[in-house]
Design a binder for these strands. Structure first.
Lengths: 223, 223
DNA sequence: TAGATTGTTAATCGATTAACAATC
DNA sequence: TAGATTGTTAATCGATTAACAATC
C-alpha cells in the first residue's frame, strides 16, 4: 500500500469539518451535500470533496454525505476514537484552563497528571488532579502510559523539560511556551504561540485602519 | 500608491521572525544574513528575503540585515509600536492566563478591563484589574477607547457578545470560543481554537504511530 | 577592487478551483 | 429513468525555491 502524505493544509481543516458536522448532528441534520456544507463553512464545495477524498469516499452520488457517518469517520482519522493519556506541565492559569476544559476528556484526552516547578503549587488539587513536582516526571510517565504532554511553562524552562519528556518516551508535545522545541523526528510538536497570534491580530487591525484612511483620502479627491 | 495585498502565509511568519530577531538582539548579535537566519529558523533564505521584501528593502548587499533595525521595522509592520487597548471577556482560567501574561503589555497591548457573566467573579481583582459585569460593556468600551477584545467565554455566549462588541465599535476580536463568529468586513477576528489544535496533534501522533507500524511490518518481510 | 549578500526575476512546486464523467 | 451529487481529472492560481544581476 502506498503511503500518500496528506498535506498540512488538509489536516488543519479537518477539525473544523468535525466541528461543523458535530453541530449539524446536534441539530438533527441527517445528510448534507458538499454544496450546502460549503455555504455554511464558507469554503468551496470542491475543496471539501478533495479534502475528504484524501481519506476515502465517504459520500454517495446523488445523496451527499451522511452526517453521523462522516462525523464518526473524521473522528477516527483524527484519532479521537482512541485514548490519549496526557499530562500538563505548568499548573498556572493556562495549565489549569486546559485541565478544566471538560470537552477534552469527551474526546479521548485523559489528563493523568499535572506538574509544576513552583513548590507552592505542589500538592494542590485541580479538578481532582494533584499537582506534583517535576522530580516524579519520568517515573509517572512510565507508570501511567503517558504519550502526550502539554507544556504551559515559561520559555526558559521549556527546552530542558522537553528533553526530559522525550527521553521518558513522550510522543507528542502540545507546546504553549514561546520557543521552538528541538525534538527527534518521531516526536510531534504542536505549537500554540499566543503572542504570535496576538501580533497577527495587531497586524490585521492596523492594516485595516490604514486601508480605511487610504479610502477616505481617495474619497476626498486624489492626493 | 498601489495597495499590494500581503499573503496570509507571510503574515503568519512575521511574528516568528520578530521572535528570533528579539532573541538575537538579546544575545548581542548585531547583524545577520538571510542565510544564517535560515539555518537557525529552518526555513529557506530565499523565503526570508521574499517575505521581508514585501515590506521594503531592510538589508544591505554584502552586509546582511542589521538585527536591531530589522527588529524595530518588523515591530512597526506588526503594529507593536502602537498602543492597543484591550478588554478580556470571560474571567475564567483562560482569561486570567491572558491577563497575567506580562509580556503583552510590553508590546503595546494594554488590558483596560475584564468582564464576566458569572456574578461570583464580578468584583474580584486580577492583576490590578477589577472584573465587571457585562452590563457595563458598551459604556466601558466608549469611555476607555477600547479597540480589541479577547473572547474567553463558552461558545454558547460568544456570538451574542461578539455582536455587542461590534456594535460598541470594537475593531478586533481575539476569539478563543469554539465557534466561528459572524462580523462585518471591517472587524478582524483571530481565532485560537485550542480543541482543533489538540486534534491536529492527535492526528499527527496517530499517523506517526501508523507509519512506524508499517515500517516494522516491512522490516519483518513484506506482508 | 573582490567578496558577500541582498533584491528581484524566473522556474518549480503544490494547493485550490473548475469541470465533468461516473453512479447512486 | 431523470436528477442530484459525488469522486476524480484537468486547469488555474498562488506560494516557494532557485538563480543571478545589482550593489554595498
Amino acid at each position: 500500500m502506498e503511503n500518500r502524505e496528506i498535506s498540512k493544509a488538509v489536516i488543519t481543516r479537518l477539525p473544523r469539518y468535525y466541528r461543523y458536522l458535530g453541530e449539524l448532528l446536534e441539530s438533527g441534520v441527517e445528510r448534507i451535500s458538499s454544496n450546502e456544507l460549503s455555504t455554511r463553512m464558507k469554503v468551496t464545495a470542491s475543496q471539501i470533496r478533495q479534502d475528504l477524498n484524501n481519506f476515502g469516499g465517504f459520500g454517495q452520488q446523488g445523496y451527499g454525505y451522511n452526517v453521523k457517518y462522516l462525523y464518526t469517520e473524521i473522528g477516527k482519522i483524527l484519532g479521537i476514537d482512541r485514548q490519549h493519556n496526557l499530562i500538563i506541565i505548568g499548573a498556572g492559569n493556562l495549565g489549569q484552563a486546559i485541565a478544566n476544559y471538560a470537552n477534552f476528556e469527551k474526546r479521548g484526552f485523559i489528563i493523568k497528571g499535572m506538574f509544576d516547578i513552583n513548590p507552592r503549587l505542589i500538592g494542590l488539587v485541580v479538578r481532582g488532579i494533584e499537582i506534583r513536582g517535576v522530580d516524579d516526571l519520568e517515573q509517572f510517565i512510565k507508570d501511567n502510559d503517558v504519550q502526550m504532554a502539554a507544556l504551559t511553562i515559561p520559555k526558559t524552562k521549556a527546552p530542558e523539560i522537553a528533553d526530559r519528556l522525550v527521553n521518558a518516551g513522550i510522543k507528542a508535545i502540545w507546546n504553549f511556551a514561546h520557543v521552538d522545541l528541538n525534538v527527534p523526528d518521531d516526536v510531534v510538536v504542536e505549537n500554540v504561540h499566543l503572542s504570535e497570534s496576538l501580533m497577527r491580530l495587531s497586524y490585521r487591525v492596523c492594516s485595516m485602519q490604514d486601508r480605511k484612511k487610504e479610502e477616505e483620502r481617495k474619497a476626498r479627491g486624489e492626493s
